[in-house]
């Protein structure tokens, strides 16, 4: 496949909202360079929900940080949300990190409104939108609570609300529900789909839970480690909306098993 020539000013002419090609990345450490990604190509169209799965250490987080503009790759081209990435793009790209990453000295509301504060929006507007988003994630009564007063699931909801307040065209999520118990994880997944139905942006969702990946996604990218690379791209052609019962269907299990075999075969 050939990739059209693009420049920083011109938006993407084709369908892709995300296109990274030939991504190579090594971390520089005291003990020399640590290779993390080797020749990775990833693309995602508008309003697509794409998951990335793979063993730990295969470079999923690194890839996400590269998409977010937080890490500059050693080599490769990045186009995200219509522009060549040179740094963070807070008005287009939002990130939800693994362990919620809330500021412990701020209330839930002030955490959610933090991106608007950085944008210097007026206080009244920040608070109104913050409350609106807290309500959206089911935390209407918790605006004044500090993170330590919230459960793990609630903290993660705050983090999701904070990402959504940026109205991102691209939402990057790094194992957002990884630290939650199985039941809460399922609930959160269901709720994320409900929210996504409204917003309908492009989501890149890193997880190591294969059932979660199948349940949420339009496609799943399978990565392998040493070196970190993409091995396969699996289309998830399950109908939407997806009730939780879909996880018991034959097709669902078939897709899940296929991912499992793909990952197993790389070890």
């Amino acid at each position: 496949m050939t990739i059209p020539q693009l420049n920083a000013e011109r938006p993407l002419t084709d369908e892709a909202v995300i296109r990274v090609t030939g991504i190579q990345h090594s971390y520089h450490t005291a003990r020399g360079p640590v290779p993390a990604l080797e020749n990775v190509d990833v693309s995602a169209g508008p309003k697509r929900f794409v998951s990335i799965v793979g063993p730990s250490g295969c470079g999923k987080s690194t890839l996400l940080m590269i998409l977010a503009g937080l890490i500059t790759p050693t080599a490769g081209d990045r186009y995200v949300a219509g522009a060549k990435v040179t740094g963070p793009q807070p008005d287009k790209v939002a990130v939800a990190f693994q362990d919620a990453c809330l500021l412990p000295w701020r209330s839930a509301l002030d955490n959610v409104a933090f991106p608007l504060e950085l944008r210097k929006d007026p206080r009244a507007e920040r608070e109104a939108r913050g409350r609106e988003l807290l309500e959206k994630v089911g935390l209407a009564g918790y605006a004044d609570r500090y993170p330590r007063e919230l459960s793990g699931g609630m903290r993660q909801r705050v983090a999701v609300a904070r990402a959504l307040i940026q109205r991102p065209a691209v939402l990057l999520m790094d194992e957002p529900f990884g630290a939650l118990d199985e039941q809460t994880r399922m609930d959160m997944g269901e709720e994320l789909l409900r929210l996504w139905d409204e917003i309908h942006n492009t989501v890149i969702f890193v997880t190591h839970n294969l059932a979660e990946a199948v349940y949420l996604s339009d496609e799943v990218i399978v990565m392998a480690a040493r070196p970190g690379r993409v091995v396969e791209r699996v289309l998830i052609d399950l109908p939407r909306p997806r009730p939780v019962e879909i996880t018991e269907t034959e097709k669902f299990l078939h897709l899940r098993n296929r991912l499992w075999r793909l990952i197993r075969s790389q070890e």
Partner: peptide, 14 residues
């Protein structure tokens, strides 16, 4: 200082 908090703030435009 938690480096994740720094990354988070940078991604939000700090």
């Amino acid at each position: 200082v938690d480096p994740n908090l720094v990354a988070m703030a940078r991604s939000q435009g700090a």
